[in-house]
Structures are given as C-alpha cells and as structure tokens.
Design a protein around this nucleic acid. Sequence first.
RNA 1: GCGCCCUUCGUCUAUCGGUUAGGACCCCAGAUUUUCAAUCUGGUAAGAGGGGUUCGACUCCCCUAGGGCGUACCA
Length: 444
Amino acid sequence: MTVKVRFAPSPTGRIHVGNIRAAIVNWVFARGQGGVFVLRIDDTDLARSTQEYEDGIEADLTWLGLTWDERYNQSKRFDLYHRAMETLKAAGRLYPCYETADELDRRRKVQLSRGQPPIYDRASLKLTPEEIAAFEAEGRKPHWRFKLEGKRVKWTDLVRGECDVDTTSMSDPVLIREDGAFLYTLPSVADDIDMGITHVIRGEDHVANTGTQIEIFEALGGAVPTFGHFSLLVGADGSALSKRLGSLSIMQLREDGLEPLAITSHIGKLGTSDALEAAGSLDELGRNFDFAKMGRHPARFDEADLARINAGVLHAMDYAAARPRLAALGADLGEDFWLAVRPNLKLFGDVADLARIVGGEVTPVVEDPAFLATALELLPTIVDASTWSAWSSAIKEATGAKGRALFLPLRQALTGMDHGPEMGPLLALIGRDKAAKRLAGETA
RNA sequence: GCGCCCUUCGUCUAUCGGUUAGGACCCCAGAUUUUCAAUCUGGUAAGAGGGGUUCGACUCCCCUAGGGCGUACCA
C-alpha cells in the first residue's frame, strides 16, 4: 500500500516553528517511503481564512523544499462534509444541542468547583421532540455533537506504541457550530477517508482527538489510518515553547538569512536519536527518517542549534549551488573564492563582506607601519596559493614576530578585519597589486 | 481539579534485567610551523528522589517531585 500523508494548515497565519514540525515529519516520512504528500488547506472557517495567508503558506513550504503531490481546499469540499453529516445523523451519532456558549461555560465551572471533570452532560440528548420544537420556534439554531460510544479506543501509535483513550471521560465533540460551520474534526476525518490517507502524523496535542476521530472513522465506515504522535517542542530552557519562539515564522527565519535545509534538518532531527547536524539534502533526511528514532518526551528547540546547523549547511554547499546566489549578491568571484570563504560563513549573506576583501576596496587597519613595510619588502613579485606560508615565515625571521603578533597585523592590513578565513588562499585571491597597496596603508 | 504522556552527561539521545552506561552537539585541551574562524585528534561529564520485585534494575512495579499535553460552538 502506498503511503499517503497530509499536512493541513489553516490559512489564518503563516507557518511557524510551532507547526512546521508536522509538515516536515510528514513530508520526510512520505519521501522516505516513496509515498504521497498532500497539502490540505483547512479553510473551512471562511471568516478567518485569507488568500494571502494561503499563498504565504505555499511560499513557505516551497521555499523549504516541502513540495506537495496533491493539494486541496476544504472550503471547496463542503458537499463531502454534508454527506458525512447525514451519514452520522442517520446512524444516530449526531444530535442537536441548544445550550448557549455561556451556559456551557457556567456548567463547566460548576463541575470544576465540585472537583468533577468538566464533561458535557448530554442534556440535549434527552430533549423531547416537543422541547426541540419549542427551541426551533424561538428561532434557536442547534450546534451538533457526535455521540461518543464511551469505550477505550485503542491504536498502535508509530511513536508511542500501544495507546488507548477513554472516551467516557470526554465530552461529545461539537462537529457543527450553531452558525452551520464545520469544526475541524469532521472535515478532517471525511477528507482522510476520501483522500485515502494512510498515516496521520501530528503532534501529541492531538492524542485525545485521535480517540474521538477513530470513533468517527468507524461511524463513517472508513478505513482507520495508522496514527503517529510526535512530542511537542519546548523552549531551550525546557519550559513550554515561548510565544515568541512558537510564533517565530518561517518567513522571519528566511528574512534572517537562514538556509531552508538548516531548518528542515534541525526540526526534522530534533527529538530523534540522530545527531543534530546538517543533512546533505531533504532526500537524505527522508532516507534516514524512522519513527523508531523519535523520543517520547518534549524536544527542546534551541536557536543556537539552528545557527550551528545553518553554518554546517553552508560549509558543505558546493559552488554550483552557491553560484546563482553569489551572483545575485554581486559576489561571484569564482569557485576558489567560494571554497576559501565558505568555512567562515554563519549566514550566506556574510559572503558579501568577504567578497569586498577580494573584489572590492579595503581600508587597511595599520598599527605598525614599519612592520608592514618590512612585510611589503619581503612580498614576492608573484603571489599565488603557496605564497603565504613562505612569506609569513620570512617576515617572522626578519622581524622576530610570531603568533598573534605576526598574523594579526597582516590580516588587519590585508583584509581590514581581525578575523576571517584562512589567509593563504585569501592572499592569492587578493593578488599582489592590492596586497602591496594595503600593506603600504593605501585603500585598495 | 481531573485525565494522558514524559524524566539517562549542560543539550539531543543509545541501552529494551547482568555494559568500563555508547554516540552526537556544547565545553576544555592538543594538532594544523606560530591570531580569530574552519578542520582534525583527545578529554571532562549522566540514570530526578524514595520505596519495592529480583541472585542482580537505568531497564519491571508503586509513591513523591518536576516537565509537557488535553480537558473549546480553536486547530
């Protein structure tokens, strides 16, 4: 059976750290299994969903490389949900309720104050046809609840193993709102059945939902998919993901200059037994993915790890991949340049400063003109990749300077900076002419 | 409040009753003919606490503590 999974975001905001894990894990699992990845836009809430966010979600996923094989809008599938609704009504599993939100809220508080679990008491289920008619005559519109069977629903979870949920301890879920809007539960199940979703992979905040949804799958006569609930992310300090971090958007990370592969590597491997480091590609991430590697406790999301992995992605990036982006920054100075500066990058954009050292003008930092004059005298007429070693040795011999005292002034004069990539290849790229001028204190 | 899940080096984790408790990141040290970075090599570092079960427990059970999630006419 071909694996088929889905990612179902609501277009009520952009994709962020708090919900991208579902997309990445589903995508990577599908890819590793040679399966199908479905993008399902959960826009049943017409009032809150916008085209702008929908476009934004697609842009975020595309940028990350998480392309989809099929895509749907739930807002265009209401017929299916209506049919599912009728099926449940006919089976006596869907019943109208007339409590207002305020009433329900009050009852919950009373139950809580008595130390009882705040479960819906099914009062509306006991309504007589006359009472219902009276409500309708008043113009009151019902919301509809799914009648739970009240049993232990069991499944074998891909990450949590044998699981069960006691639906007697839960309220009958509202499937259809008073205004007729479908809440996410029914469309989700109806679509999973209709689309032939084989694996539902989501965060562990959904385990209780899985109990009720399995009952709905069964009531609808659909095949129950395999479920997998991965642990949620928490902040670097181990407490709940902060609001800032949880809502940190992919768009923002992109603007910060991070690599998409760094984000997918980080979040795809977080909480697994794999080393937290850059993957070579999304495909590689897919090949190595295994639910057995996933831990069951919350995984810490640390931006420092993301930054480190980002550097790792850059350090492994070959010239062919970097070239168009270098060109876009006006920093395509050839493969030798890329290979020389690549190990020093934290963010791709850092390359612009490094390009200036080779292709642009640098105002040298000069603290000891006499030292640099000596260096200039010793500079060979031909400067190439092998120059640095011999030249610096000659300067050491002539001046007695060594270590930091030897290298730092040279770096500062030649690059205008006190840190940067290895000087050997850099000197060759700078060339004799510019090097000589900078050693003489001239901007060149 | 109630329910479910979780708790091994600072971090991510391996171990599925008998191990010198392994790996990766961080950190530290050394190397790279001698700055920073990068790279390589090596090193420090762990079973939340308390009870059981057992010849033997990180591993199984119970309690406590701590963390996460759920308990919506949100998703």
